[in-house]
Design a protein around this nucleic acid. Structure first.
Length: 212
DNA sequence: CAGCGGATGTGCT
DNA sequence: GCACATCCGCTGG
């Protein structure tokens, strides 16, 4: 992993499994401002700052895929925290989630939108400019974000905390102001659809619609 | 801004 | 078999 950093700073290391080993609402809030890093086969890297997440808080949450029990599709969510849960929705778009806890409690955080890194952030992270690539597509909206990072079903259950992973998360360099609202596209979930489990960086133009 | 087509895996009957 | 899905982009008013 250090091989992807030109001038790695000792204090900037991927988030450890402990970070993810908590309920999804807590993790979703604290992922805002963190940097998602994707390394491709050719060694090049795309890195973005997360600005929008949604928490799916376990089997009692009717909007959460784990609420129907364990299936072939959602089994990654029942595994250990710190892995991805990726699925295909509407037959076209991939959605990229981070599995949370505590323990094996089937929580997950949907990664909905991200922003390009500022020059200051690049500098603070010590990311190599040569290996850095800008995303080829929009990073607003879960389907777009997954496409921009080329994340697909092949990455389901991928471990974000493993050495030399294709994907990992770096800690946030500042704490953003957060606004909350109901989650998108879960009207079927009754009262759960109205809970404020969507978290956005306030005033970020990269948050998906409808803006909070 | 509402409406809708796209394209297919998934879970239930 | 079938209805629906943690979406997106385009269309028409």
């Amino acid at each position: 992993m250090a091989g992807t950093l030109a001038h790695p700073r000792a204090d900037v290391r991927p988030l450890l499994r402990d970070f993810y080993d908590r309920n999804a609402a807590q993790v979703a809030k604290e992922l805002l401002g963190c940097v998602l890093v994707r390394r491709f086969q050719d060694g090049r890297v795309v890195a973005v700052r997360l600005v929008e997440t949604e928490a799916y808080v376990g089997a009692h949450d009717r909007a959460c895929h784990s609420s129907i029990g364990r299936t072939a599709r959602n089994q990654a969510m029942f595994g250990p925290p710190g892995r991805l849960y990726v699925y295909l929705v509407y037959g076209l778009h991939h959605c990229c989630n981070v599995v949370c806890g505590p323990g094996l409690d089937p929580n997950a955080v949907l990664l909905r939108a991200a922003a390009p890194l500022s020059a200051d952030e690049l500098c603070l992270l010590g990311l190599s400019r040569e290996r850095m690539r800008s995303p080829l597509h929009s990073t607003s909206g879960p389907g777009n974000l997954a496409r921009a990072l080329d994340v697909s079903l092949a990455h389901d259950a991928l471990d974000l905390c493993a050495a030399r992973s294709a994907l990992w998360v770096l800690p946030r360099l500042f704490i953003p102001r957060i606004v909350t609202g109901p989650r998108i596209g879960v009207q079927y979930a009754g009262a759960w659809s109205r809970r404020h489990l969507r978290f956005c960086e306030r005033n970020s133009p990269f948050v998906s619609r409808p803006r909070l």
